[in-house]
Write a protein that binds this DNA or RNA. Structure first.
Lengths: 225, 225
DNA sequence: CCTAACCAGTGGCCTGGGTCACAGACACCA
DNA sequence: TGGTGTCTGTGACCCAGGCCACTGGTTAGG
């Protein structure tokens, strides 16, 4: 494993080589195939993970069995850190959306490692603070925006993180079924489908299996706010 | 100002006396009356605050002017810390719900102060992590629960933090108008009113101006999940 | 006091979106 | 090469809850 993969995580990007090597020593690698679950909501566990390759979804299940996705994470992103500071059962289920690999890091390792390095503590704080800000945004959207608006927003966010710009538009291979997309925006599969079909009929985007090509980012942004 | 007020903040509860005194030295006190605004969403600012006395609401306004409350905070609770790590415009407006007082603490002061004290950094991390967990819970509720359910949950939360148990039930002086309560749960004033009236007619609680007396916590909890 | 604001309570109408019920399109087998 | 499961596309129906319109009660300010 290369130091670079660790440095992909924004949190660790500022590390010097020696520190990265030291950190790496306390980490181990894991692989999953699409659909496999890393851990379930309610499990105990005190490891944090960084996605090296692939994508995962963080989801929670309501008492009546319906599911809600908190986030889709790709390479360089971290999850499970909450259990480091707020120990207790895992608050979400993590499932691979594509074949994926991760490194992990235990509670004690990270904490011990943190104590001497205030910059890293700050980085972690910044990371979690950003996440909190985003969670609050999602909240406001659930209250204020309609389903098409939330779908547009979700697509733009995915495009930002996973999109590749080509001359016919921004290709976004989000790897999500429409069902998953629906769980992400907090709506039913049918309604999301209709919103997507509507966007497509207006020429704002083209639908492809588990991916979209956004042809008019401008319009989509306007619809999202 | 007494060291105890600072220690009310869970974050600083573990401080020894010397540290509390040192911290206090870099803080200054502020007072607001009901309805006054401490700062607006979009303002710049890099101070964090701790509520000494009273209550505040953190709210955001949508583009079309409607408002959504993120949280109600009381004595010992901190806010504005996000701007410490994720500097930038304030992400919410803070308004006094009752006459209130606060101490504040600047960016540099806190960060400088943090560097030598890893336990405090951890405390802060734990605090923000907890907040993030809660924000995610609220998200799930917005997706899964109906308005009466969310109202019940909000009341129980307020009861937890501001309630006083008496022999006729738990008295919760939340100091919120029904309009504010509605903004907190992401619903209209009318619907919240009807939910409250329904709970009252079932004998689960008694309504009083800006407060409720919960007479059957059990039932309310069942309705909330 | 009197009047103006604000706040709580309630009924009625109307629509966004959830649920149901299918139907076509692939893909991956046995 | 039919068969079974997963995914997408769409119409029909229905209800939770938003918005509107009022009423009565309470508070604050002149």
């Amino acid at each position: 494993m290369d130091n670079d993969v660790v440095r992909q995580a924004p949190l660790f990007s500022a590390l010097d080589d020696e520190a990265a090597t030291a950190l790496r020593a306390s980490m181990s690698e894991i692989k999953l195939r699409r659909g496999e679950v890393l851990f379930h909501e309610g499990d105990s566990g005190d490891r944090a993970y960084i996605v090296l390759d692939g994508k995962v979804k963080l989801g929670r299940t309501s008492s009546d069995g319906r599911e809600n996705l908190l986030a889709i994470l790709g390479p360089g992103q971290m999850f499970g850190e909450l259990s480091l500071f707020d120990p207790g059962p895992r608050s979400a289920t993590v499932t691979a959306v594509t074949d994926s690999s991760f490194t992990s890091l235990s509670h004690e390792d990270l904490l011990r490692w943190l104590d001497g390095r205030p910059q890293v503590a700050r980085g972690l704080l910044a990371q979690i603070a950003g996440r909190l800000r985003k969670a609050n945004d999602v909240n406001a959207d659930l209250v204020f925006s309609d389903v098409p608006g939330r779908v547009a927003k979700a697509l733009l966010d995915l495009a930002d993180r996973f999109g590749r710009t080509a001359d016919d538009g921004v290709h976004v291979h989000h790897d999500l079924t429409q069902e998953e997309l629906a769980q992400l925006v907090g709506a039913s599969r049918e309604t999301v489908n209709k919103a997507l079909a509507d966007f497509a009929s207006r020429g704002w985007l083209r639908l492809e299996p588990r991916s979209v090509v956004i042809m008019d980012v401008e319009r989509l942004q306007r619809r999202a706010r």
